[in-house]
């Protein structure tokens, strides 16, 4: 159940971020997690992507609707909602995830700095037939997703 542990770590990173922003540990709600094929359309409006290398390889995406990002910026005291700001904030959330990963999973996890993608995810770097986890998130009524696409070493090869 290594996947479970990894996903929990990513999820905790995001939850902690939103708990911090809204000063309410339960503000971020998680729907029932499900699976998608990587060739399907993934992601919402804006996505912060972290690449993972090392013993475990893959990607973690924090993908969000514009509405959620707007609310997030609002609660951080911003009043501008340009793409620049939205990209910034989505990258920031992704950053929090990678921070949490480094702390809990230790140095054998190599993590890239987050990259921000606009629109649907570019799934070229993902194996099209593999399954990824989608964790539907809801924050103050707005949707986001945590997409975990891990190609753990012991899966197929």
């Amino acid at each position: 159940m290594k996947d479970l542990q990894h996903i929990t770590t990513f999820l905790d990173g995001v939850s902690r971020y939103f708990a911090h922003v809204s000063k309410d540990p339960k503000s971020l709600e998680l729907g029932t997690p499900y699976l998608v094929r990587n060739h399907e359309q993934l992601g919402l409006d804006l996505t912060g992507a972290i690449a993972i290398s090392g013993k475990t390889k893959g990607f973690v995406f924090f993908s969000s609707s514009r509405a959620l990002l707007k609310y997030l910026l609002l609660s951080l005291g911003e009043s501008e909602f340009t793409d620049q700001y939205m990209s910034d904030i989505v990258g920031e959330v992704a950053n929090t995830i990678s921070g949490n990963v480094r702390k809990t999973l230790g140095p054998e996890f190599h993590i890239s700095t987050p990259k921000v993608i606009c629109g649907h995810l570019d799934n070229d770097s993902l194996k099209p037939e593999r399954l990824s986890y989608v964790l539907p998130l809801k924050w103050r009524g707005n949707t986001a997703q945590l997409i975990v696409s891990l190609d753990s070493i012991d899966a197929r090869e």
């Binding site: 996947d3 997690p33 699976l35 399954l131 986890y133």
Partner: peptide
């Protein structure tokens, strides 16, 4: 129940699907 409670099931589901795919391959 919350989404978090279901997460282990999703992980198990993925494993089962992957094992069936493994059979296929």
């Amino acid at each position: 129940l919350s989404g978090r409670d279901v997460l282990p099931l999703t992980v198990e589901l993925k494993q089962i699907i992957e094992n069936i795919e493994l059979l296929k391959s």
